[in-house]
Nucleic acid binder design. Sequence first.
RNA 1: UAAGUAAAUCGCCUUAUCGCUGUCACGCCAUUGGCGUGAUGGAGGAAAGUCCGAACACCAUAGUGCAGUCAUAGUGGUUAAUGGCCACCAGCCGUGAGGCUAGGAAAAGUGCAACAGAAAGUAUGUACAGGUAAUGCUGUAGUGAAAUCAGGUAAACUCUAUGAGGUGCAAUGUCAUGUAUACCAACGUUUGAGUGCGGCACGUGCGAUUGUUGGAGGGUAGGCAGCUAGAGUGUAUUGGUAACAAUGCAUCCAGAUAAAUGAUAAGGAUUUUCUUUUUAGAAUUCUUUUCUAAAAAGAAAAGUACAGAAUUCGGCUUAUAGAUUUGCUUACUUA
Length: 128
Amino acid sequence: MGLTYSNKEKLKSKKLIDQLFSEGRSVSAYPLRMVFLKTIHDDTNLITKAGVSVSKKHFKKAVDRNRIKRLLREVYRLNKSAYFNNITTQYALMILYIGKDKPTYVEVEHSMNKLFDRFVEMESKKNS
RNA sequence: UAAGUAAAUCGCCUUAUCGCUGUCACGCCAUUGGCGUGAUGGAGGAAAGUCCGAACACCAUAGUGCAGUCAUAGUGGUUAAUGGCCACCAGCCGUGAGGCUAGGAAAAGUGCAACAGAAAGUAUGUACAGGUAAUGCUGUAGUGAAAUCAGGUAAACUCUAUGAGGUGCAAUGUCAUGUAUACCAACGUUUGAGUGCGGCACGUGCGAUUGUUGGAGGGUAGGCAGCUAGAGUGUAUUGGUAACAAUGCAUCCAGAUAAAUGAUAAGGAUUUUCUUUUUAGAAUUCUUUUCUAAAAAGAAAAGUACAGAAUUCGGCUUAUAGAUUUGCUUACUUA
């Protein structure tokens, strides 16, 4: 798993997203919140399929939403290998930005690391 | 030089590393297709609001008249079209350059009108004068923009003229996994309900039900088309006061779909502030010092707006840090 985030790794299926929100569990580290669900992808090499989302309620301008989503994607791309390379189960993820202010790159990176720490902890506990 | 006014243009840049997405070429795996490598494209002047006008698509629709609803409203031109744009006229505002205009009709009717005034539409009081059989019957004074004489107002109803089907690319077309299955065919199964032949039984045919296969329908997930070469862009010439048009040459310039066009680092540009130096002017009794303006150098921090394509065009409206250019006006200075 490299530093890529190509089309395949994006969560695109409407069905899967609906399922994720209705059945998935969540973990949060303000201003981020992640909904996740164990699934089986068609491609066995793939570990995760991930999407990002920003509330239209808090950010009315499309420019702001785009900016935040790009940051989230970028941080996910650069940091995911550290956490998900050791995992064999397949997941569908959706990362939500629930804050109300525009973040910087460093802030997002910091809180996403925190988020993933909690996620890994939660899952290892459950498995053991 | 300052202030103003009109119009036009630009609206951060470069490099490195790591990524996203379209297209093309090659290679590999290979059924559609997938992967890799390389090359090359990848947000705006408003992409925004969705306010007008079109293209395109589907639905509706015999023709005509009347009524209603909505829109438009000087004249001429321009355009695919418009309620846009251009020119001119008129009115109003401004010293001026210029700006603004919802600029058809008040003798079809209805309504409305501050203050003043007796009275503003159901009119008619006072004083004086005139007049009559009698009466506000007549005149003057007084109020007001306007007094039995009418006027103003149609971003009040109204009238006149002209125009107008509806819904929007989540339109629409097409391929179709899976699931359930109206229907048809073949084969098989069964307590075989029911039923034809027959007086009855046997027998035999049809056959509810159920299973398999095939056909056909339906159209969900999803894919493809629509989907970007167009009333295109740049430039030159010609015609026209102009909007705009014609012709020649050159050119291809985003197509995503939980939605690409980014992130990080370094450097630069620009604006603001401060310091120093120089020059000019002013204040002060002189050196000094202080203030103002300009230029150069340095430093520091802060700022670099508004804002993100979603079928495509032509407009309008609104938002916008900062920068540039041109025409003109007014004031001042110098010659």
